[in-house]
Amino acid sequence: MHITTRRPDTLQGPAEHFTGTVWLDEIAAPESPSRLRMFSVHFAPGAHTAWHRHPHGQVLHVLEGEGLVQREGGDVAAIRAGDTVWIEPGERHWHGAAPGTFMTHLAVVEAAEDGSTVEWHEHVDHYPA
């Protein structure tokens, strides 16, 4: 067993991967052989990710606020505090806060053999207003 009492500093989401103000807190990144990674992600109103995909999929659990999520070719779906979203391995998608509210979610992923957890793509060009 290992108890973490200090976490890395909060980081601002880089502009090449996010639109708007986003803050990232690493919650878990255990040593090998574990490949689990967990983050608490805080989106300002209207802030969202660029299109991206995860090699082993992703679980999002909304802690507060309201957000939006969309997979490529699908409709934009509203998500709220208490909702959990399973994104399939390799499924291209984006997610973020609804235009008028903050949203915080836990994001859980499993790293690939090479240690990568995400493949980033272009910014979303049709974010709902």
Rank of each mutant, 00 (worst) to 15 (best):
G65I: 05
S40C: 13
Q70N: 05
V22L: 14
P30H: 09
A81D: 04
A81N: 02
Q58E: 02
P30S: 08
R35Y: 12
L63W: 09
V22T: 15
A29C: 13
G73W: 03
R53C: 02
E16V: 01
E110C: 06
H56K: 05
S116Q: 14
T101I: 05
L24G: 12
A15G: 11
P14I: 08
A50M: 01
H105Y: 08
E91G: 14
S40P: 12
E31T: 13
A77H: 11
R71H: 11
Q58F: 02
E91F: 02
R6L: 11
G67E: 02
V118Q: 01
H123F: 03
M38D: 03
H93S: 13
D75I: 06
A111L: 12
E26Q: 14
H54L: 03
A50D: 01
A28L: 15
H123N: 03
P55Y: 04
V124Y: 00
H2L: 13
S34Y: 14
H56F: 00
D25L: 12
M38E: 09
D125V: 03
H121D: 10
G74Q: 10
H54E: 02
W86Y: 14
H48W: 06
W94R: 00
A29Q: 15
G13T: 08
V59E: 02
P14E: 09
H54M: 05
A98D: 06
D9R: 05
R80H: 06
E72I: 01
M38G: 09
E113S: 10
A29W: 10
I87Q: 08
M1G: 15
D25H: 15
A29L: 12
H105M: 04
A112I: 07
F39C: 04
P33T: 14
A107Q: 09
A97C: 10
L106D: 07
H121A: 10
L11I: 06
A77M: 09
H42D: 15
Q70R: 10
V62H: 05
E64M: 10
T84L: 07
G82M: 03
T117R: 09
D83W: 07
H48D: 04
T84E: 06
V118I: 08
V76Q: 03
V124K: 00
T49Q: 01
P8Q: 11
F43Y: 15
